[in-house]
Design a protein around this nucleic acid. Structure first.
Lengths: 234, 234
DNA sequence: GTCTATACATGGATAGAC
DNA sequence: GTCTATCCATGTATAGAC
């Protein structure tokens, strides 16, 4: 069946990316991982790059769907950081974290891949944005920081941390630890009550001068969270 | 002269990475960029991977040295975020931002590259750490967040943002905007005076429970800053 | 739809001339 | 130290048999 072989190739492409990296992912290595003939890559997808683009969407959708229920449960910034750490640990073993990073690296110079990888990251960012919109109201940054922009910063920052993890496990752990501490701090800021919040916001309006956020976002912990709370690669 | 050719090859390797990405960077493409013969890659460095590892250190040292004076001038978190944006803009045009990301992606599956890329990122992280140690004292997170870990989170997060920039320029700009707003917020928090700081720290000690930072770090803005304030790739 | 065979290009690496 | 020539492996893509 064609559907079956297509799916095998999509999964094989992701596996080849995990095992070989973008540099050594070829029609042959994908076909080997998929257990099918090499020529079928071109029959079904036309070229290796088109298969990779399709695999990117496929993988991201799968992974995001898997974590969606857990994103939906997040009710505070501290919980988001914790989900980030869990996701990091779980996806790392399966190697899924690496694939989006590999595709992003490849997309820098292969224009075919850019839209697909941007869409893949977008799926994660959209989940994060939903969380932020739930979590931000009531915090000092409500109305000051663009939720959409912050979600994208967190998602892409997380990708960077995953790449770092691949070359320095201990360093990455320490980085995640630091972000978790920042998460604690944010939780405390939320607790300080409306007086402080109002003071912060009054100063911000006066001092910040420049652009102000469009929708809403969250305080400090979130930034550091870029590495800690964003979702993993597909 | 041998030194001359070696240097040409190092520069050629970086150029090839920018133009072709890790996937299409080969002894031949490097030699072409360097304007020398392909066989010299193997004569001088033994293999392509070893040349790439050397080029990684070479490029990172060059770039970090170039920005070191500006890092040294940073006196507040807001200034750090601003330097991050400047660095992002300047390095992007030269394509330097991309090389460390490409090497990191390659290092995930080519063990030869891992130590070299980790060292390259380390150079940037070390600069960031010095800044943090200057900027953190007096903020609520002093003594609560590990400066070293935070510096690494920011550096690697920045890499992720640079990769994102390559596939979605507008999205990345929006992400940077959001991080800058967070930077403003941190500045305000610093302004709120010792009363708030003390309240925050008292709560943190009670609530956070788990691990507490070893040296020092900074508040929220810093986290988001991962994308905005960390240094660019070499 | 799938596999085998095959063409042609590119890349890693070495030998030997200069 | 550097260049040319060359070998062999790997990769893209297509044609044609099943």
């Amino acid at each position: 069946m064609s559907e079956d072989t297509r799916t095998k190739l999509l999964a094989g492409a992701l596996e080849a990316l995990v095992r070989n990296g973008i540099a050594k992912t070829s029609a042959r290595s994908i076909a080997a991982a998929a257990g099918v003939n090499q020529g079928l890559v071109f029959y079904h997808f036309g070229s290796v790059d088109e298969l990779l683009a399709a695999a990117c969407r496929y993988g991201a959708e799968q992974r995001v769907a898997h974590y969606r229920p857990r994103f939906a449960e997040v009710r505070s910034f501290a919980e988001l950081v914790r989900l980030g750490r869990d996701l990091h640990a779980e996806e790392r073993d399966a190697g899924h974290v690496a694939t989006l990073a590999q595709l992003l690296a490849g997309a820098q110079t292969r224009s075919w891949l850019a839209p697909a990888t941007a869409a893949g990251l977008e799926l994660w960012a959209a989940e994060l944005e939903k969380v932020l919109e739930r979590v931000v109201p009531g915090t000092p940054i409500e109305g000051l920081v663009d939720t959409r922009g912050l979600a994208r910063a967190l998602a892409s920052g997380f990708i960077g941390l995953e790449l770092y993890e691949g070359v320095d496990h201990e360093g990455a752990e320490r980085a995640l630890e630091a972000l978790e501490r920042l998460g604690d701090l944010v939780a405390v800021l939320d607790d300080l009550g409306p007086v402080t919040r109002r003071a912060v916001r009054a100063r911000l309006r006066g001092a910040a001068g420049g652009t102000q956020g469009r929708s809403s976002a969250r305080p400090p912990a979130s930034p550091g969270g870029d590495g800690g709370e964003a979702p993993a690669a597909p």
